[in-house]
Design a protein around this nucleic acid. Structure first.
Lengths: 366, 366
DNA sequence: GTGAAAGCGCTAACAG
DNA sequence: CTGTTAGCGCTTTCAC
């Protein structure tokens, strides 16, 4: 209980420690900052005095002169989404190990918000930025110019952008997707729906048209679709544009789209859902139609969760290594922050296809 | 392409803008900092010059003099957990609206890590801290002393601690829990399991012993248990200590504990699972025993998710308003940061009991 | 090995 | 309304 009415009891500064220890500021700075060399004797005394006074370094003042903030910026679609939450956790863990902290911003897949987020991080002078871009693979990202100009280390997270020359850490979506769809084909499916294809106003005319559209979709989404196309092609199954959705990515839309497909004269016997809400939306559609999984329609989802394995039936899913994705991203970024001048590289992580009981052979046609 | 080999192209400073505009630094500072008053004419010129030069304020230098960082610190158990991820999203949204950013740290319910996290945030001079403490309601939190001393606004998130005199935003866990258990009782259940009770080495001897243990449990966990006890008491159902788990909070442990209860001579006919993994763990136990939900055992979970409603059967759950919890916490914190001296208050949010199909009357005894 | 002094870019108090 | 000036707490030459 001090009798003063100071707004904040100020933390002692280096000068005060110096005065109390009877040495110069610089010596204290060297001791407390852990650089330069100080004689063990005075070092110990300074440390003792500092501890007694409860000295805490003023990181802001330090940042001002060093230019380092020991803070990483993370820009992703939505921290509330389990996938990104898992990734963020991985980033945080790796950052903490290196004594860095993390500033997070969500974009909701909006490029304006992404630009604003980048600006904030640049202004706050984070030492590095991990970005899951909201832009398609062939997009131009002018808001990253300043990041380059300021030479702030940047690593792309989960999504590649061709025009950005930076390290990246991604999942092998194409291969994971091909594998999942192939497993469906091996069970005898030939009518396989793909939920969530790229958002467009009208369905793709054909596979080539679709490939053109993919250029403007998120890299990860595009790759998943390419993997689907790969699997079909390998099996010699013709691509049917009516089996790929082009709706907005929310659960009700997925349900609606699947309901539409189920009404086709030649409906799908299997559904590949490339996101959790695409899967739950599809399940809802099946239920509405009174269709059972896997007897009537087989299902494969994306992203594992404790729920997936306790469903009836347990859901087969492509499990992305979220935590590892985050960790590797942070490690990669921290290496750059530490000054690594290794050539720019893209690290590709494999996803794990978890086979459970939501896939069965298609029902024999009546 | 500059021919210089400067490590970083430095951003222009206020002095440079002043020189270029032919005015004094202070005038520029006033204009760009948005304080004091400047004649419209010079103001416009300065703005033009600043824009042309690509001036960006150095927030670190600014923080050094103002003491403000426009950053909020958030300390929670695990950003990767869907509940906290949702809460964090709410905090971020509210923070952004007020032009603040968020630094997040996970504690994994470890008080050491919590103390370290607080220290980091204090050192980084965040303007306020939102904390979901890893300590029981009656715990002593010495690592918060420095927060008080520095007069850093603090708000408790999701969990109360009696010894901490700070604003808090929590869910009415007790009432939500009471309501859920009561709905089970109304269906005729009298043997209701409670998964996850507090972690202890040996089960509680009786209800009073349990109440004593609750003091050391997380506030939210304790309240859920009290709500359970309330419901039993109201219905005149004797408390059976063997129906409350005391295991570590992970899914396999939940499964094991439920399996044990199911082997009781008078096994539970309903399970109240107070966390998602407690629910999935319970479901796994039922499946292993070949028991069906809700015919054999009724189930109520905690925290809603897109999965819960597409389960077979759809799961009844207590849905916590995660996003709102986060938003309100941030708003509360920001009000303090802005200097509010309203009396310390605890805001209680109601949870929503979502009744679906996982509850049915107990099977008639053979 | 140590101390003195300059300066990071900004805000704020004070004159003019 | 505007310019001058003095720091904020630290790191970092540079002498000693």
């Amino acid at each position: 209980m001090s009798t003063e009415r100071d707004h904040r009891t100020p933390s002692p500064t280096i000068s005060e420690v110096a005065a109390a220890a009877g040495v110069g500021r610089a010596t204290v700075a060297r001791t407390l900052g852990g650089y330069g060399s100080v004689s063990p004797k005075t070092r110990d005394r300074i440390l003792a005095v500092a501890k007694e006074l409860g000295y805490r370094p003023n990181t802001i003042a330090r940042s001002m002169t060093t230019g380092e903030t020991r803070t990483l910026g993370v820009v992703l679609a939505d921290v509330g989404n389990p996938f990104f939450a898992g990734v963020l956790r991985g980033i945080s863990d790796a950052a903490r190990k290196a004594d860095y902290d993390v500033l997070v911003l969500s974009t909701d897949e909006d490029l304006q918000l992404e630009a604003a987020a980048i600006e904030v991080l640049v202004d706050k002078q984070v030492d590095g930025i991990a970005l899951a871009p909201a832009a398609g693979r062939s997009a131009q990202l002018p808001h990253l110019d300043i990041v380059h100009k300021r030479e702030i280390p940047l690593v792309l997270l989960d999504r590649l952008v061709d025009t950005v020359d930076a390290d990246a850490v991604v999942i092998n979506n194409r291969e994971a997707s091909r594998q999942a769809v192939t497993s469906l084909i091996e069970q005898g499916h030939r009518r396989i729906a793909f939920v969530w294809g790229p958002v467009t106003t009208e369905p793709a005319a054909d596979a080539d048209d679709l490939r053109r559209i993919i250029d403007h979709a998120l890299w990860s989404d595009g790759e998943r679709l390419l993997g689907y196309l790969d699997a079909l092609e390998l099996a010699g199954i013709p691509f049917d544009t009516s089996l790929v959705t082009h709706v907005l990515k929310n659960e009700p839309q997925a349900t609606r789209a699947v309901l539409g497909m189920l009404s086709l004269s030649d409906p799908p016997t299997a559904i590949f859902a490339t996101e959790t809400d695409a899967l739950t939306g599809s399940l809802r559609a099946l239920r509405q139609r009174g269709l059972r999984c896997p007897e009537d329609v087989s299902l494969i989802g994306f992203d594992d969760s404790s729920w997936a394995s306790v469903m009836t039936p347990p859901m087969s899913v492509v499990a992305q290594p979220m935590h590892q994705l985050g960790e590797l991203t942070a490690e990669c970024l921290l290496a750059r922050v530490a000054g690594s001048d290794a050539p720019v590289a893209t690290h590709v992580l494999e996803a794990d296809f978890v086979e459970r009981a939501s896939v069965a052979p298609p029902p024999t046609r009546a």
